[in-house]
Computed example of a mutant assay.
Amino acid sequence: MSDLSPWPEGVARHVLPRCASTNAEALSHAARHPGPAWIVTHDQYQGRGRRGRDWAMPAGNFAGSLALRPAGDPAQAALYSFVAALAVADAIAAVAGPAARLALKWPNDVLLNGGKVAGILLESAGHGGAVSALAVGIGVNLAATPPADPDAPFAPVSVAAETGITITPEDFLDLLAPAFAAWEGRLLTEGFAPIRRAFLARAARLGETITARTGRVALVGRFDGIDEGGALLLTTPAGRQSVPAADVYF
């Protein structure tokens, strides 16, 4: 494992024995406190994934959320999903070393050796077109895999099973928090462009044919990247399409 970077200045850290949802805790924290805070639990019993799906958490896995009060509108807040994906990949790489095959699946999954090892869920609160609180939820299969979802595009994998390396959620947070702070710093000072380049450098199946399902519609085309707002760029027989939200299948 690589040397630890310092814990980011001004960021609080809370480890809970048990809670329903770290995202819910993060939104509550952000409503009461101005500063950012990581909230991690050893037992999350009502975790959520995209589109309201359940997120199971076997013992020893990482469930955590970063509570933020970002500036800007919902579209700008949504870019934190890419920041989180890059940070999770960096943290896993620090644990697993160069032999681990890591890839980022648009819009919110991290793949390890071809299986899903982590997922990201952003939830926000606000009014009048402004975001007053943002929870950046992250789940990582460190120790064990949850039951496989037959409708999921990838089978779940764990860091322990794929690499033989074990790490506690607290130690993983020590890697994740500095990585997130570094990428967030670039987003705030340089804009989305460097985040977009870094994401595409690790993007799974870039340039290949994929299927993007949006509700009942399935779009099939070549994955040609993401645009300046983070939307999927898909070249289909009908031409280039920008897809802001979808489930992607390879």
Rank of each mutant, 00 (worst) to 15 (best):
A71K: 10
L187Y: 06
A179N: 04
R50S: 14
P150T: 03
I167N: 04
P153F: 04
A63Y: 09
A103Y: 02
C19D: 07
G52H: 04
G128F: 14
G52E: 12
A179M: 08
L86Y: 01
E184L: 05
G128S: 13
T209A: 01
N108D: 04
A12S: 15
H42Y: 11
H42A: 12
L173A: 09
P156G: 12
E190Q: 12
G207E: 01
D247N: 08
T189V: 10
P156W: 11
G49D: 10
L187W: 04
A177Y: 04
G52S: 10
L187P: 07
L16H: 11
G64Y: 09
P34A: 15
M57K: 09
A133K: 05
P17Y: 09
H29K: 03
F172T: 07
V140S: 01
V248C: 00
G221I: 05
A67P: 07
Y249R: 13
A218T: 13
F82D: 00
P156L: 08
I167S: 02
I138N: 09
E190W: 07
G129W: 11
R51Y: 15
P153V: 05
V110Q: 00
D224H: 00
E208M: 00
L121P: 08
A198N: 03
L86I: 07
L102P: 03
G185T: 09
W38D: 14
Q241Y: 03
L4Q: 09
D227F: 12
G115P: 07
V88L: 02
R213E: 05
G115K: 02
L200W: 02
K116E: 04
A212Y: 00
P17N: 12
V88A: 02
R53S: 13
V40T: 14
L112Q: 01
G49A: 13
L175W: 07
A26K: 02
A148Q: 14
H42S: 11
T236V: 02
F192C: 08
T209F: 00
A161V: 15
C19M: 12
N113T: 06
A152S: 11
A99N: 06
L121N: 09
A218N: 15
A103D: 03
D54I: 08
L16C: 12
N141P: 14
A155K: 10
A218L: 13
L232K: 04
F180T: 08
N108G: 04
P34Y: 13
V220E: 13
G137K: 06
R197C: 09
A93N: 08
R53Y: 06
T163C: 01
A130K: 14
G47H: 13
I226R: 01
R213L: 03
A89Q: 08
T211P: 00
A179R: 05
A152E: 05
A99Q: 12
I138W: 07
Y45L: 09
A30F: 06
L66S: 08
E208R: 01
A100F: 03
F199E: 03
A89R: 05
S132H: 14
P74S: 10
G164P: 02
L111C: 02
S124C: 14
H14S: 15
D227C: 08
G129C: 12
P153R: 04
A100G: 06
H42I: 06
D171L: 08
L176V: 08
G137L: 07
V140M: 04
W55I: 06
H33P: 08
D149R: 05
I120D: 01
P58I: 09
V157R: 13
L233E: 02
N141G: 15
V248N: 00
I167W: 05
R13M: 13
G49I: 05
H33F: 14
M1P: 09
F82T: 03
G128L: 11
A24P: 02
